[in-house]
Design a protein around this nucleic acid. Structure first.
Lengths: 326, 326
DNA sequence: TTGTACGCGTTATCAT
DNA sequence: ATGATAACGCGTACAA
């Protein structure tokens, strides 16, 4: 490994001078600068980030904690974060929490031990004191917390939109798949949908679900049609669940969207590829990731920030599991 | 931040002693050990990994470089790696390369600067000297290199399997979508398929593709049916391309699998959810990730290793885009 | 404009 | 069995 000392020796100057030219701090004569730069070139020197991090007590690393990168919603989010960070010379230590508080703790700990300068987390325990105690800027992504900066989609609006659209397109016996109670955005969506449905006096049922895994989603889809075979409109808690419902409806010989309309949530890449393609509420996942990155960077570099909560817009994407509006 | 000094002071011992109990190195009296442990507990001390890393010139970090986490094949891989590493107390610095050599270089550089102890990369330039020069263990994942450890699926076998199955199920005018030439596994698949096709004297055409993006895949799908409208069997280079072909076939009013059979490659989660569900060659992506992690860890901890190249098995998954075998 | 010397938090060596 | 201290590579007072 070639260190700053080697460069200093090669350039016949002190390490302090080398440091100054590297970091462009303090005065240094043009000639010596050149000598140093040449030495750097020749030796192929690059500063050791670990030593820097130790001295400055902060690194160029941030921690990213996601429930499960294998869930098709999260890669977009992750990519947005990565691109935003990459462009600003931050790197990412990445972990999957599986919505498991212990794993989450473990990662937060190693984030600290590695001097990360900030954390982006998609957690169901935003108010846990493990975050409160953290002396670092934290941005919650796809999750809301009363008193921490966060980036999230307008779930309530999304829920309302979905309900409005399914009504406008003629469903009169709606079933809402209520997402996991501990996941805030899922509840926002649910609430939004319920509001609209109640307001318009449309009859509706609720099926309670407790995860977003496809395997389980299949079970709830069966339960749904068991209990409410005549439902003519399903508001799913996300696209995975919607996909399972679609499968089950097709399996039962129902015509989608004629017999039953289905609207998902998230607009994961899968959705447009199904047949029939899934109508859904689009969340700008990639952009949300980028926003989170931007917000965290501002927090890191400026300490505080104007707009601590960024709510991203959602929109209805009309595809083939809904009928044409009247 | 609470340091080893604070603990030492609190326990009325020297930092050396604290270090000894923390790392369980050297003798220390049971009583003093207890004093130290109590102090650690009270102060909530955890060692600073950065300082450790500086002194030992190695961290508990590894670098993971993937083309694009947004491509549905990679999350499985990433998750496998992460789980394998996590269980052995290694953390991951993660980056997307976009198959772009410059980005790749950048990441490799920051990996080095952060004292990572190993790298897992899914790169198209495994023989680039940026890897050769690397003084670190590198494992190539889903990519082969003549002289570096790697974990990859048996692409040739997969290609052969796909061809054999499509023939056995009655296709006689087959089209192969040849994947990007610079991606080794894609070429292996292609080669395997060609071998079988030639051997059995079946007529076949080739459509050349140059990426795995869905947008472009749609174009090639159109090109495919433009040039070879009467093809009755398509061997796609991966499931994304297969999905596009399926869409186009359906759009043209073809009956799948009656008029045309389609076999994909990878078995991404999407595939089983399509209608008709996609028949494909399954790669054990998650397990490949885990294997790569295991291999790298062995390389890190033992320097060298028995089996430097791990070839994973593939298998045909029969779903609904192929007919029943005769 | 440049160099010396210390400190960042750890671990390991060498005394004691 | 324990402590003092050098070293890891870097950045910055402070002195020159």
């Amino acid at each position: 490994m070639v260190t700053i000392k080697d460069v200093a020796k090669q350039a016949c100057v002190s390490v302090a001078t080398v440091s100054r030219v590297i970091n462009e701090t303090g005065y240094v004569h043009a000639d010596t600068r050149k000598k140093v730069l040449d030495a750097v070139e020749q030796l192929n020197y690059t500063p050791n980030e670990v030593a820097r991090s130790l001295y400055k007590r902060k690194s160029k690393l941030i921690g990213l904690l996601l429930p499960d990168i294998t869930n098709p919603y999260f890669p977009q989010l992750a990519r947005g974060v990565e691109d935003g960070m990459q462009e600003n010379d931050f790197r990412i230590i990445f972990g999957n929490s599986d919505e498991n508080e212990r794993k989450e703790q473990e990662y937060i700990l190693t984030f600290i031990q590695n001097n990360v300068v900030g954390v982006i987390a998609s957690t169901n325990h935003p108010n846990s004191d493990m975050y409160a105690k953290l002396k670092l800027p934290v941005v919650f992504l796809d999750r809301t917390s009363s008193d921490s900066p966060s980036v999230y989609a307008d779930g309530r609006k999304g829920g309302r939109l979905a309900a409005e659209e399914i009504i406008a397109r003629g469903s009169r016996r709606v079933t809402i798949m209520q997402g996991p109670v501990h996941i805030r955005p899922a509840q926002d969506r649910f609430q939004g949908a319920v509001e609209v449905l109640k307001q318009s006096g449309i009859e509706f049922n609720v099926i309670q679900t407790s995860s977003f895994s496809f395997k389980e989603a299949e079970m709830w889809a069966k339960e749904l049609f068991n209990k409410h075979l005549d439902t003519d409109g399903v508001l799913a808690s996300n696209d995975i669940v919607a996909t399972a419902v679609l499968h089950e409806a097709l399996r039962l010989g129902k015509n989608v969207p004629h017999d039953v309309q289905i609207i998902g949530f998230d607009d994961i890449p899968l959705s447009s590829l199904l047949s029939p393609a899934l109508s859904t509420i689009h969340q700008p996942a990639y952009e949300m990731g980028r926003e989170a990155a931007g917000l965290l960077i501002r927090l890191i570099e400026q300490g505080k920030v104007e707009n601590r909560n960024i709510q991203m817009p959602v929109r209805f994407v009309e595809r083939d599991t809904t009928r044409k509006a009247d």
